[in-house]
């Protein structure tokens, strides 16, 4: 194979694949969003009616707020815990290998299964969560029956699942800091706090930003956990955006309206994607 033809041939199949299965659907998404879809088929042109409904629909507003609350609580906790745990494990402790393995277990645990398990764990009439909290004198928490706590419950499952991701990335970051730097700093100040402030922290900062961005990107997709754990309830207290879109499209079969929701999400995400791309460019080159 000649270099020039190889250059094209190696990339073309994949590029075509992506174009066919992503770009084409995206185009079709716009088409659908301007149509009425009922009784299992497109029943007419809708103009901007789907979008009009979108911006006056209280359910949409609710799902946006709910999503923002859940993911900001989850992400803040995950990043914080991940950082602390990574910092702790990155120590000459005898059992740090063991902890590393245990902490990574939740990473790929099937989210649907985890969410279902947590229904039993949160069970309010004597389930393990409240029993354990009870040992410390904490009164029973209405995990799934209270609208506020239901949001927290979803966040907690997300935290359980995703803290390991932050943990292993931060750990990789800590481990890439050369030992000599620490030693030099130790000779310099002897103050542990100073070392943390002047060596660890600046070096981990870029990784911190990356983790944060990646988490935001992934967290916006949140669907599995509320879809199973609370089915969006009580009321709409945990009806996140993806769940609401899915419901409208594939439970009520109003695909026109659901497509309009997709279009808006896409438009909102574009600045975020551009931002991520900008950061990535820096990292890559």
């Amino acid at each position: 194979m000649k270099r020039n033809s190889a250059k094209v041939l190696f990339v073309l199949p994949t590029a075509l694949w992506i174009l066919v299965f992503t770009a084409y659907p995206l185009g079709y998404l716009f088409y659908l969003s301007f149509h009425r879809f009922r009784f299992g088929r497109i029943i007419g042109f809708a103009g901007f009616r789907n979008f009009e409904r979108f911006f006056t629909d209280d359910n949409v507003f609710n799902s946006v707020i709910v999503t923002l609350i859940i993911i900001s609580v989850a992400i803040a906790t995950e990043v914080f815990l991940g950082l602390i745990l990574a910092w702790l494990v990155d120590k000459p402790l005898r059992m740090n290998k063991f902890f590393r393995v245990i902490f990574s277990l939740p990473l790929f645990a099937t989210p649907v299964a985890v969410a279902f398990l947590f229904i039993t764990i949160y069970y309010e009439e004597g389930g393990p969560m409240n029993s354990i909290l009870g040992l410390f004198g904490i009164p029973p928490v209405p995990w799934l029956s209270n609208p506020f706590w239901a949001k927290m419950s979803v966040a907690v499952v997300d935290i359980w699942q995703w803290t390991p991701f932050c943990f292993i990335v931060f750990l990789a970051g800590f481990q890439s800091i050369p030992q000599e730097l620490y030693e030099a700093a130790y000779l310099d100040t002897k103050s542990r706090w100073q070392i943390l402030k002047s060596v660890s922290f600046p070096l981990i900062l870029p990784i911190f930003t990356i983790v944060l961005i990646l988490r935001i990107m992934e967290a916006i997709k949140i669907f599995d956990i509320p879809a199973v754990l609370t089915i969006g309830g009580p009321g709409r207290a945990t009806e996140v955006y993806s769940l609401f879109t899915y419901r409208t499209g594939l439970k009520y079969f109003n695909l026109g309206y659901a497509s309009a929701m997709g279009v808006v999400l896409l438009l909102v995400e574009i600045p975020l994607i551009m931002f991520i791309v900008k950061r990535l460019r820096k990292v890559i080159s």
């Binding site: 992506i18 659908l32 879109t245 499209g249």
Partner: peptide
């Protein structure tokens, strides 16, 4: 190179629910 790389990466950033409806009909 970077452009091509990023073209593929944006695929991962795209929330699945966005393409769910059109893919369903396709």
């Amino acid at each position: 190179n970077t452009d091509i790389y990023i073209f593929f990466l944006t695929q991962r950033i795209l929330p699945p629910v966005v393409v769910l409806m059109p893919l369903y009909i396709i």
